[in-house]
Amino acid sequence: MKNFLEHTGIEPGRLHFSWISSAESTKFVDVVTKITDEVKMLDPANKKYVKTEPKVD
C-alpha cells in the first residue's frame, strides 16, 4: 500500500503505518509525536491529495 501510494506521487514521509495495541498508550504517543514532527518538516507545498473547493473553469 505504501509502495503503491508513493508510486503514484504521494511524497515519501507523509504515509506512516504502525501496529499499536489499545494497551500500548506510550507507544501510541511516541509514534504520533514522531509522525507529526516528521510531517511538519516536509514542504507544505507538496500537500497533495487534499480535496479543496471545486475548481471553476
Binding site: E6, H7, T8, G9, I10, E11, P12, K48
Partner: peptide
C-alpha cells in the same frame, strides 16, 4: 512501464498520474 515511472521523482509521478 512501471520501472519507468518508478525512476521519476515524487512530483513527476504525481503529475504523470494526474
Amino acid at each position: 512501464s512501471v520501472t519507468k515511472v518508478e525512476s521519476l521523482s515524487a512530483d513527476e509521478k504525481w503529475n504523470y498520474f494526474e
